[in-house]
Design a binder for these strands. Structure first.
Lengths: 217, 217
DNA sequence: TGGCATTATGACTGAATAGTCAGGTTTGAC
DNA sequence: GTCAAACCTGACTATTCAGTCATAATGCCA
């Protein structure tokens, strides 16, 4: 029984994973409409009909990729409280988001395109959850401000700012690569993170934790 | 003669403008592949063949929309010198970019998708010009830093940061609207601009010009 | 061995759609 | 009036592509 399940899972699950990875790549670089099932199949090294065996429609496949993406959004900031240190918490959040941009740029791009196109596939569940998350984080930041721990900045704009500037490194990597002349490596991301943390925290009137201090200064 | 040209121009130019506006809308919300010539024609209120009379191929039409977009990128910052005041100059640049996000969100979206998809249609001319612009701006910011006018921040990351956070209001307007419960109006953009200027300039160790001070504080 | 579930796939279909073409109409100059 | 250039358009073609279907192979257990 265990054996059976294991084998079943390993065939099906393995193919699903291969297909999802191929689809992620294709959707990220060409969008939903720009991607054909045949392309995904070729990338996955499988016949097209086999792809459609695992995912009934192209749209189903896209939804699967998209929800895989959304599951990456979780963060330590989700669990923060007003007792936490704002500088440490925000710095860690920025660092986490930057790390995501580095390790999962395709996910970020897919999400970006989904939003740019009007988010037709983000359902009410996602919207509600996202709203609740936002409310919670805003409340905590407001408490920090009340307690005089940081300058009075509108928490909404602060969060938009963090999302924008961190996701930018994934979504606009093409532009950044062309301007720099080469791709950003791990150390470059590390530098960028420090600068981002420094500029954002300083902007909020917070001291930059040592860990994020820029070496050269 | 003048009459002839004027009339010729008014028929052709008028239709071109109508088509470009329709195409901008369609491309911004559905991308290149997601948009059919028929859709553009319907939006423009013209038969499809008439659209193809003015723009030989869908790709030609897209290129026309894209270059229209790029022509909006010009800014007062382009002409700045090291003698200028960093606070005023950067604040004005941020405000200009925010105004562009408000008045031309579709252009911003088209540019964003072009970059996300690997910028296949941005030619060497654009890349070179963009590189030169970047070098020039970086040099000026470095001078400001040398002169002790602002904190030492890496100019590259500063500029990425400004682009990211301002364009975000156009590209991710769907997300922002859902979180706020309503679309951002002119006054909301004005508030957002002030916050962005404040957080960015403070992050650079600059005093915020009165014009951008947040009222409630 | 036989039987069942899962997995695999080539051949096909129908719809969408970019672009062509041939012929038509309007406009303005002379 | 007439001529040329610009403008307009219905009908058609060729291609791409999502999704179906009928038919297999495979693996597993009794």
């Amino acid at each position: 029984m265990t054996q059976t399940l294991k084998v079943d899972a390993s065939v099906g699950a393995r193919n699903r994973a291969i297909i999802l990875a191929a689809a992620e790549k294709a959707f990220a670089s060409q969008g939903f409409r720009g991607t054909s099932v045949q392309q995904v199949a070729d990338l996955a090294g499988l016949p097209k009909t086999n792809v459609l065996y695992y995912f009934k429609t192209k749209h189903d496949l896209y939804i699967a990729v998209l929800s895989q993406t959304l599951s990456l959004w979780n963060s330590r900031f989700d669990m923060a409280t007003q007792e936490d240190d704002p500088a440490e918490t925000l710095a860690a959040y920025i660092a986490e988001k930057m790390e995501l941009s580095r390790t999962h740029p395709m996910s970020s791009k897919i999400f970006a395109m989904e939003i740019i196109n009007g988010a037709p596939n983000l359902d009410n569940y996602f919207n509600d959850a996202h709203n609740k998350w936002m409310e919670g984080r805003v409340a905590i930041i407001e408490k920090w401000i009340e307690q005089g721990k940081m300058r009075p900045v509108d928490p909404h704009y602060l969060l938009y700012n963090i999302w924008a500037s961190t996701q930018h490194y994934a979504d606009f990597s093409t532009q950044i690569t062309r301007l720099r002349g080469c791709k950003m490596k791990k150390v470059d991301f590390s530098e960028a993170t420090k600068h981002l943390v420094t500029i954002t925290l300083t902007g909020c009137g917070l001291d930059v934790p040592d860990k994020y201090k820029i070496d050269s200064l």
